[in-house]
Design a protein around this nucleic acid. Structure first.
Length: 461
RNA sequence: GGCUGAGUAGCAAAGAGGUUAUGCUGCGGUUUGCAAAACCGCCUAGCCCGGUUCGAUUCCGGGCUCAGCCUCCA
């Protein structure tokens, strides 16, 4: 039975979809004015795992991840670059998709853009106006009146009183209440705008998610996710908008992933301490990045370090080694390994625990191979592959994992194969010194050998 | 100040009120022409103080420390 930690109640709850076998999930995506960093990668990986696992359990999942393609930062960046904001966002949407593909993320069912849903946004604001939850300030900006929504704070465990006790409230005399937030923002000279009953302007950040989620998934859906920093105020505001507008409960389960940290501090654009996905992909494979993220439960913070990425590579080596040269047959049903894995994943997507089931399999495959129990090894190999694939691991070509990239200079695969054959000949003649000389030469070139009975396999370090 | 989380061996990271987590690293052994890989074994744990219990790292209370949110943010 699947349990999900629900941020709304701060506890793990048994997951029950609204419609049997069907799950509707919305995850807050990126604001596209720059390249995605590792923090974005974590959201993508975390919910990719959720998406894959729910599908593997037989659910028909509609997974929406939106794109925020209009906001202050986008306008500012476009101005700085002297380009149209559309050109800017299209460039970074393409880049995001490249990164996503590179990381082996399954694309969401739909990626709605804010600018494609202005009609729905305006409709929602109108309804909020009619129902008295919104008002227009002297500046022309339209605000949501937080105090009108009784449940405000239910997601983040705060109430307006707590909030008011804080001393970090920006003074804004245009608003009735400092916690009111913008639904529609008037365009300044030269800024992009859309027409509305309140004047030319653009949507606020919060309303776009409410509008797109309810448009595509309906007023009431199963799962809403995003980074932990979005819990307040973004998700709180989404609830206030959506529930005030529709009169229905918004999302049943709220999932928030933990941050990537640098030196125990949040990685973020505002702190300037971030690594982009493409930057890290220059040094590490996508699978190493994914593995690194899966070693910790999605809600936990995760400290970035090259040591950890190196360790991820070493761990993957072990899994790939178990699979290397193995003939795959049919995975056994209902094995203890699978039970272990399923129980782990059912426990709020506990990937570290699920990984341990993979390593149990790897060890037993190795033992079976040592004992020449080939049938057993083939079956366990099939299972390892299936379970690993379920969380996006071991999807690549096994030989390619070890042999790496032939095109990066150094010795070519053919040259290596030729030297390996020469060494085999030397070994056959018991010319150990020549055999060792050839092996030393290969080690020098970053190639290590493994004698495996009559044959020799090799890998790039 | 308010609200959330977290503190586990050299590093990373889970579960479980008593029985080996797991991976990487280190050490010893088996294997190997020698290696590598593999296998077997070993060394390193549970922030502090109380309480509950026959028994707590695991539950409860109180500290301390760290991180996040309260402003844009994944």
């Amino acid at each position: 039975m699947l349990k999900i930690y629900n941020s709304l109640t701060n506890q793990k709850e048994t997951f029950t979809p609204i419609e049997a076998n069907k799950i509707r999930m919305y995850v807050c995506g990126m604001t596209v004015y720059d390249y995605c960093h590792l923090g974005h990668a974590r959201v993508m990986v975390a919910f990719d795992v959720v998406y894959r696992y729910l599908q593997s359990q037989g659910y028909n999942v509609t997974y929406i991840r939106n794109i925020t393609d209009i906001d202050d930062k986008i306008i500012q960046r476009a101005n700085d670059n002297g380009e149209n904001f559309k050109a800017l966002t299209e460039r970074f949407i393409d880049a995001m998709h490249e990164d996503e593909r590179a990381l082996g993320i399954h694309p969401p069912s739909l990626e709605p853009k804010a600018t494609d849903n202005i009609e729905e946004i305006l409709g929602m604001i109108s309804t909020l106006m009619e129902k008295g939850y919104a008002y227009q300030g002297a500046s022309g900006d339209v605000y949501y009146a937080v105090a009108k929504f009784e449940d405000y704070g239910k997601l983040s465990g705060r109430n307006l009183e707590d909030l008011r006790a804080g001393d970090r409230i920006a003074v804004n005399t245009d608003k009735n209440d400092p916690f009111d937030f913008v639904l529609w923002k008037m365009a300044k000279q030269g800024e992009p705008y859309w027409d509305s009953p309140w004047g030319k302007g653009r949507p606020g950040w919060h309303i776009e998610c409410s509008a797109m989620a309810t448009k595509i998934l309906g007023n009431h859906f199963d799962i809403h996710g995003g980074g932990h920093d979005l819990q307040f105020p973004h998700h709180e505001n989404e609830i206030a908008q959506s529930e005030a507008c529709t009169g229905e409960h918004f999302a049943n389960y709220w999932m928030h992933n933990g941050f990537i940290r640098i030196d125990e501090e949040k990685m973020s654009k505002s702190l300037g301490n971030f690594f982009t996905i493409r930057e890290v992909l220059e040094k590490y494979t996508a699978e190493e990045i994914r593995y690194f993220m899966l070693t910790s439960q999605y809600r936990s913070p995760l400290n970035y370090s090259t040591d950890q990425l190196d360790a991820a590579g070493a761990s993957l080596d072990r899994l790939y080694t178990a699979m290397r040269g193995l003939t795959i047959s049919t995975a056994p049903q209902n094995s203890s390994y699978e039970t272990h894995y399923i129980n782990a994943m059912n426990d709020d997507f506990n990937t570290p625990e699920a990984l341990s089931a993979l390593f149990d399999l790897a060890r037993d495959i190795n033992i079976a191979r040592d004992k020449k129990e080939n049938e057993k090894a083939s079956e366990l190999g099939a299972l390892l592959l299936t379970l690993a694939n379920g969380i996006g691991l071991l999807e690549g070509d096994i030989e390619a994992w070890f042999k790496g990239d032939d095109s990066k200079g150094g010795m070519s695969n053919d040259e290596i194969d030729s030297l390996v054959q020469q060494r085999l000949d030397a070994k056959a003649n018991k010319d150990w010194s020549l055999a060792d000389k050839i092996r030393d030469e290969l080690v020098e070139a970053g190639v290590s050998l493994e004698d495996n009975g009559a044959e020799t396999i090799w890998r790039r370090e």
